[in-house]
Design a protein around this nucleic acid. Structure first.
Lengths: 398, 398
DNA sequence: CCGTATATGTCGACCGCCGCAACAAAGTAC
DNA sequence: GTACTTTGTTGCGGCGGTCGACATATACGG
């Protein structure tokens, strides 16, 4: 129960940043004295530092702010995207200590090669960490279906992976002694947008990521929708068009065959390798420049985006839809179309409470979400990390 | 925190029935002493009675069972269906003390008339309650979109209702002094199937109710998926066929236009008033008897059922789908078709962990779910009800 | 410039709740 | 009948939190 209160406190500080002690008492409903003890505990563990109290302008004694200490706990975040790899070190409070991304266009890479390159990417970031900043966990975002229990990538069509024990591979290759969690890219995008992006404070939200495939991260009642094994949120494979295209999943007329990158290019009469971002960018540029075929393709995808979104809105009754990836770039061009489809097709009651916005974190949303995932275990139980005094004792012993 | 432990205990007893004290200690992880105190507390409030310990066959002192006491707390459950009304009194542990249902075919009734008839239905049930059995709350299941916050029926197309403050109406008309909660029929069906039906122990499940419309109650990670305002789960309005029929919701090609009762009759070339159950029953009988047109219609609906279910399975990754209403009767006729569509269209990973079964509670699932909804508040905080000693004092004072 | 009002941190006392250990009770196995 | 096992009961101790009293730090008004 002490654990629980520490967790609540640290979670809030991590998510909301510096907060005065009086604010913490008001927010948690706990007593001033208790907050004092808890903050002291967190400080002893190196998670927070107390600042100087500065006058707020109001009457009364000013309350000193409590700052999350980025070096108190660091997450290693990794991302395996279709055409790029990324790594970042993220400290408590969401402070990004270092970040690197490399393109890896076109080809398909084996899990082993991928993990090798992730290790190369991560090494300098880890070396550059400030002294005494402990890496407490790692998180990996990956485009594919992930069994959350053991961090196994069940299937990732765009990578050509089947049943890859990614968590174990990363842990071994990077010689990590900390837990490694793996999550679906869209799920983790939703997570970061929820904590510090376009969905802050919104406990019912859908993050929709359009890439080669279409995936969603869904947060209902503040909690991530995982399902029995963690495969939930695969809205890209909602059947929307019985007379449509064959989908890579084996079905016909899945939503992603109408709104994915492939659909966009196909509609414009252009062809490209799957995962060829430049072709998509060119098409969007052409559409913005007024090219008729490009505009028609964009418009058609926008309509289908609205159609599918209507279904998503009906099913989840979210307060906000956050668009990431391709959809983030597409949305400004088709916002009115999407809204019109929603108006016409979604149930009024649900339509009335939802808005559609663009990702605030951009391409890094999944990467940052991986960091959040990694830190989550610690945030749930801050007592996992012993007080600094004991840490020093342990260090001296060695 | 005492509240919390009492809640955990009572919830378990309510859901799982009689449990020995030793079982409770093992299940909660609490100490024997603590369990003793807590059980004593619950007994003092009239929620449980302790039975005689009977030899189990094993060595050691036998543990006495703790029984939930149905008369300890009673919920009044009500249901407003398209063509019937129902009421029940349900005691702790899910014991149904009384139950009545009346048909109300065809026509549309005003909220006032409906509530009047609910009152007539409920009165004898309440009169027949054992002495000293307190009604602690009421729950209402209704076919329509319900704003859970205030129990307002936002829209119920099949009843012709818009913005009906049903909770308030019921409370006033039935002169209830206890809270009245309102929920969507499918949501409550899911709830009861989850607690004591075909979904016991399954924390990721979808209850799919086919009537005039198609609705779903969705439970993810053990919690009901409500969404921002409680309108979630309206899978009937997933767009599945852009060239399909116009739907009452204003959209085109919603799933329920392909699998609802209307679709079934239409496909068989029969017409009927919406909500005419006999026409549907006749059709199903004909199909079972071998009538070609009927069988073709049933088969087509079965295919569409599978198509939509594939989407639902992809999105929610449930461990079980429970079919209620029309679908419960339909399923035996089309199980193979549904399974085949799922095999072909759902993602393998999700498909592998899901099964499709028929409702165990039948037509009463939503009604019983309303009782669960009503009892939920008490189960969350058993201290709301004072110990019997004080209750008697209060009674003596009057 | 200084008192007053307001708000906050700190310290010690109190209390509720749970775990623990010893004991009593109620069964089985031989 | 005796040994053993499992369980309920009871009293004690500790952890964690609230509460009240006091010290401290600022804004406001004269």
């Amino acid at each position: 129960m002490r654990r629980h209160n520490l967790s609540v406190l640290l979670r809030h500080l991590h998510a909301a940043g510096p907060t005065t002690r009086s604010d913490l008492t008001a927010r948690t409903g706990l007593n001033r004295s208790t907050i004092g003890v808890l903050v002291g505990d967190l400080a002893a563990r190196g998670f927070v530092v107390e600042g100087k109290a500065t006058a707020t302008g109001g009457p009364g004694r000013p309350s000193p702010p409590v700052h999350p200490r980025p070096e108190g706990a660091v997450a290693l975040a990794l991302e395996v995207d279709v055409d790029s790899l990324a790594a970042a070190t993220v400290g408590l409070g969401g402070h990004v200590l270092g970040r690197r991304r490399v393109d890896r266009p076109g080809g398909r890479f084996s899990p082993e090669d991928t993990v090798d390159e992730l290790a190369r990417l991560a090494r300098p970031l880890l070396r550059r960490l400030p002294a005494g900043a402990p890496v407490v966990a790692a998180g990996v975002a990956v485009v594919g279906l992930v069994r959350v229990g053991d961090g196994c990538v069940r299937v990732a069509p765009n990578l050509g992976w089947v049943d890859v024990p990614l968590a174990a591979l990363v842990r071994r290759r990077l010689r990590l002694r900390v837990p490694v969690a793996v999550g679906n890219e869209a799920d983790l995008g939703a997570r970061s947008e929820h904590v510090r992006g376009a969905g802050v404070g919104i406990d019912d939200l859908v993050y929709l990521s359009g890439e080669v495939g279409v995936g969603a991260g869904i947060i209902v009642g503040g909690r991530h929708l995982g399902g029995a094994e963690g495969y939930g949120g695969e809205v890209g494979h909602l059947p929307v068009n019985p007379t449509g295209q064959a989908c890579g999943c084996g079905s016909v007329g899945c939503w992603e065959t109408e709104v994915g990158e492939g659909a966009l290019l196909r509609r414009a009469g252009r062809s490209a390798e799957p995962g060829d971002r430049t072709a998509v960018r060119t098409l969007l540029d052409d559409a913005r420049a007024g090219d008729d075929a490009a505009r028609a393709a964009v418009e058609a995808v926008g309509r289908w985006l609205g159609v599918g979104l209507a279904g998503v809105v009906n099913v989840f009754n979210p307060r906000r839809v956050v668009l990431g990836g391709l959809f983030a770039e597409l949305h400004p061009l088709v916002a009115r179309t999407v809204d019109a489809e929603l108006d016409g097709r979604a149930l009024d009651a649900s339509r009335a409470v939802v808005d559609v916005v663009v990702s605030a974190l951009g391409v890094d949303a999944p990467l940052l979400g991986a960091a959040e995932l990694a830190l989550d275990e610690l945030l749930g139980d801050p007592t996992r990390m012993p007080p600094l005094a004991e840490q020093n004792k342990d260090a001296a012993r060695e």
